[in-house]
Design a binder for these strands. Structure first.
Lengths: 373, 373
DNA sequence: GCCAAATAATTCAACCAATAAACAAATCGA
DNA sequence: TCGATTTGTTTATTGGTTGAATTATTTGGC
């Protein structure tokens, strides 16, 4: 992750890598580990761990826990944990019927949470983003009053986003080529924050990843007004070459089926969209099952997580989907595909957005230490 | 690639990384670069480059070219190139109607090539693999007579392969749970070689990668008796969690269509398999187009390479496939999907197999230097 | 109540790899 | 033949990890 393999490695990179290794090891440990435990589990020496941990403590990323959990003979170990009062991530979401902002600290705890329900469709993009910016500013202010330092901001959008953060199309918002980062910078209280924009399903997948465990591999499918998917492989989000992967809503399910507003025919969205779902249409589960089978045959993902509206209707959909998976996935007989409902519900995208920011800090603590001085 | 990010980094790893960086930079350069040119392009110092290059030359991976291509003032630069007489990769392929083995040197040149045409279906797996082993032994012998050192062996199989090299199912060969590496070790002349087994489409994709350029992203689709696909992202092959990705042949195209031997209905293989193709069936192109659209919608791949029998019939299939891609790929209007025929034809898999071995050497020259002493 | 055993964390000399800057080598142009 | 120019090497320095020895802090036995 630090080394895209086409880049030279100097001594400082190895320090940066090992700092990230330690920070992530602490983050993924069940109990607060000691320096010695970190040494054995990472393979670094105790001396090295001590030196690096000192830096992380000085930089406010790790804290030494006061009450040493004593056991057996020997000097008691000092437990290490992520600091709750340190860098934090600001996550935002704009969707058809609400705006949301939340702040997550380094430990992953949600510290602030603001929502504003209102139909965004009549609003022009600049107005909607200004309103969202104000909501984000409130969240930031409240978080910083608690001693947090917001390290950056991520925005979830139901549409296609280019790597630069330009929203190319967001059909359900009626957006086209909206420069979201620039518009958000119009709100002075958050103008200094680095902004990342990403697809709603991608960020929701990251949100579920936090719950699923660090190394998980799964396909997250979100049934909002549109249907999107986020693919997580070994704990990393796969975005595709241009950031447009996961457009499962327009996967063809019935080649000569109903016409879709995208110009094609028989898209999944026509059979398993929110209207079909609430109308209790019998085709929804089968159509989803067919589309998901395609994904599994292509990608060999062992788990599918259903989010958004699908999470609400999970029990009703389950059997129908699983029938198709059993029939249509070639390797179903060799290893089963796990199907489960999302655990975060409609919060997944905002949570994932905030999470993606602190993920950035956890993966490059050296950068944070440099900036924080 | 060297750093799975959950592993500590020591000084030796940074040397290993930079050795690989230099070797790959030489490999991907159009003209033989000088040490100074390597320094500027990689970002390392001239001193560091010199030291590392000395090691690579001593280890027989690089050669200094005799006639310095002189230009302008200053001391003339000594060009560096991969050695043709060094480590080599042995690639093998077993398919329904032939066996093949080939040896590729570090520069990517094919140095030996053996084929044996015979229907493998009546043969039991041990017999077929013994025959293949003998063919491989001949190729190795001939290569070593030319001064090459075979570093390892890779085998392409038309079936599902587990990471350990076990062939779980190869329907067209009638194989099930065949321990190919163990059976190949039965041939004494190649028993010492490390063996890797992989799916035919995956390795063919690697073969095409060599031709496509180092950083390419594409989906390779092979129309053999079965239909498989190999996904290459930024020059890396994606194998899926269990190595079973790319089973595009059993993607559902027509949900209530023809029954397939896999137990499902309407699989791509029923409409675009080799029989359909040679029978000049009109559905082949449309079915392919529908399946490929699914892949592009899910994965956002900018290029599709058609191999095997599809390469032969490319011109006839092209228009029909492109029509479906235009209709069914959501982002087709934002950025086109390139469709082209494979350049290596039926050789892709063996070539890719041999290539995967030397790719291993190029990505870990430090390991090779250690072994070679 | 004191000492040995055990475990945690730190200190310090050694080592390894890259860097920067000076230096040597080889060529061109005047 | 001499300066300019570019390539490649040498050498002292720096940054980072290692390994062994050392210090710190606890438990348990006598």
């Amino acid at each position: 992750m630090i080394n895209p393999s086409s880049v030279p490695v100097r001594q400082s990179s190895i320090r940066a890598h090992n700092l990230a290794l330690l920070l992530n090891t602490v983050a993924n440990s069940a109990d607060p580990p000691s320096r010695a435990a970190l040494a054995t589990v990472t393979g670094l020496t105790r001396a090295t761990v001590s030196a690096l941990v000192d830096d992380l403590i000085a930089g406010g990323l790790l804290t030494e826990l006061d009450p040493p959990p004593r056991t057996g003979a020997g000097r008691p170990a000092a437990g290490l944990a992520l600091t709750a009062a340190g860098p934090a991530g600001l996550g935002c979401e704009i969707n058809v019927d609400y705006l949301a902002a939340c702040v997550v600290d380094l430990t992953g705890a949600v510290r602030q949470r603001f929502t504003e329900h209102a139909d965004q469709r009549p609003a022009a993009a600049p107005d909607a983003l200004a309103a969202l910016g104000r909501l984000a500013a409130r969240a930031r202010l409240a978080a910083e009053a608690e001693g947090l330092v917001v390290a950056g901001m991520a925005l979830a959008v139901p549409g296609l986003v280019s790597p630069a953060g330009l929203v190319r199309v967001a059909p359900n918002l009626g957006w086209q080529d909206v420069d979201a980062p620039a518009l958000l910078r119009g709100v002075p209280e958050i103008a200094d924050l680095p902004v990342v924009v990403d697809n709603e399903a991608n960020l929701a997948a990251l949100g579920e990843l936090r719950v699923a465990g660090a190394e998980a591999t799964f396909l997250y499918v979100s049934g909002e007004i549109g249907i999107g998917a986020g693919l997580v492989i070994d704990g990393e989000l796969y975005r595709g070459v241009r950031g447009w992967s996961g457009e499962i809503g327009h996967l063809t399910v019935y080649p000569d089926g109903r016409p879709c507003r995208c110009g094609s025919r028989g898209c999944l969205e026509q059979y398993a969209g929110q209207e079909a779902l609430t109308a209790d249409e019998p085709l929804a589960a089968a159509a989803l099952g067919i589309a998901l089978s395609a994904a599994v045959n292509l990608l060999d993902v062992p788990m599918i997580v259903l989010g958004g509206a699908y999470a609400l209707h999970f029990e009703r959909l389950r059997a129908g989907i699983e029938t198709e998976l059993r029939r249509r996935v070639l390797t179903a007989g060799l290893a089963p595909v796990t199907l489960r409902a999302a655990r975060l519900g409609t919060d997944a995208a905002v949570r994932g957005a905030a999470d993606s920011v602190i993920r950035g800090v956890r993966d490059d603590p050296a950068g944070w230490l440099r900036r924080a001085g």
